[in-house]
Simulated scan of single mutants.
Amino acid sequence: MKKIVFLLFTFLTFHNSNAQEVKTLTYFQNDTLKLDLDLYLPKKKAGQKTPLIMFAFGGGFSGGERTSEKDFALFMAENGYAVASISYSLYMKDKDFGCGGILKEKIKAIQIGVSDMWMATGYLIKNAAKYNLNTSKIFISGISAGAEIGFQASFWNYSKMNLYQNNLPQNLKYAGFIGGSGALIDTKLITKTNAIPMLLAHGSKDATVPYGKGSHRSCPENASGFLILYGSQAVYNHMLGLQKDIQLITFCGGGHEFSGYLFHEGKKQVLEFVSNVMKGKKFESSIIVASDKTALSGKYLFCE
């Protein structure tokens, strides 16, 4: 019996390890900087192009690794989606990204990260045929700082904000955004024309990235690093006014520790979201409220 169990385990392990492949690619390089991405590819299907999910890790623009959400990438690849987990420039490394920092430096860190994301997107569009990618179905996602990259990359004007040579098609529009505890510089960036479906998760008492409109890192107005951001709730309300599709999972009383929920416990919700967007399904904008990572039944009607 033990032998049978062992053989079954070996078979399943071998099968899963061959259900997708991972390629490490250099998407940008100059004399001082080299940026890589890990491309997780599902098993190829003849004549079928693969949707792509771009992913940026969290870490306050000063730390973090592109391999941090490997389980999420493997899960999505096993279910038919390619995932590109990118490295990006950690401009705030050894600098203060908090209240004692410099506002212009904080904005620059975000702009550099966004430019890196655009560069990675353009690289994969250029090489789409080689990796069997569907360039009309590119999603963008991220955690914390990575979600800030994803938000801005989705709605900034890349012909004006891109710090590098523009390698993106003029008509690029991401298919959807999945964000954990991220924020926008200004919700007015989202219009009826450029709005895309979103799946967001955020703690209602997040002191690092505001849940609604608030100060980044809860900094006072007289702080040198004072920066107003518009978090998931503010984006939800704005999308509601535009009558555009958005789903927000709110963790009542939760802090920044819920930033990774969608990419850990909520992987199936992400899969359902991207699958529905792929099918062109319209869904009602909604807020799911929970007290913890396992209580997603809508028990709480609001957060105090």
Score class of each variant (00 low, 15 high):
A153F: 04
S204W: 01
Q247C: 05
D36M: 01
V235D: 01
K160M: 03
K281S: 12
Y174V: 15
G212C: 03
A195M: 11
L271F: 10
N237D: 15
I86V: 13
Q111Y: 09
K44A: 15
K173Y: 08
Q48G: 00
D116I: 14
G179Y: 07
A129R: 13
S159M: 05
S68V: 15
G225D: 08
Q29I: 00
Y300H: 07
W156A: 01
F72W: 12
Q29W: 03
G101V: 07
K173N: 12
L262D: 05
N127Q: 00
S181K: 05
G98R: 13
L12M: 14
N167R: 06
S136K: 14
S68R: 12
T67Q: 15
Y81D: 05
L296H: 01
G212Q: 11
I246E: 02
M119R: 15
Y300K: 02
Y91M: 06
W156T: 00
S297T: 12
V209W: 06
G142S: 05
Q20M: 14
N171P: 04
S286P: 01
R66P: 04
D292G: 02
I185V: 14
G101L: 06
I287S: 02
Y164W: 04
L35T: 03
S17W: 12
L52H: 02
A201E: 04
G214H: 05
Y131N: 10
K43H: 10
S159F: 12
S85L: 09
S259T: 11
F14V: 12
R217V: 03
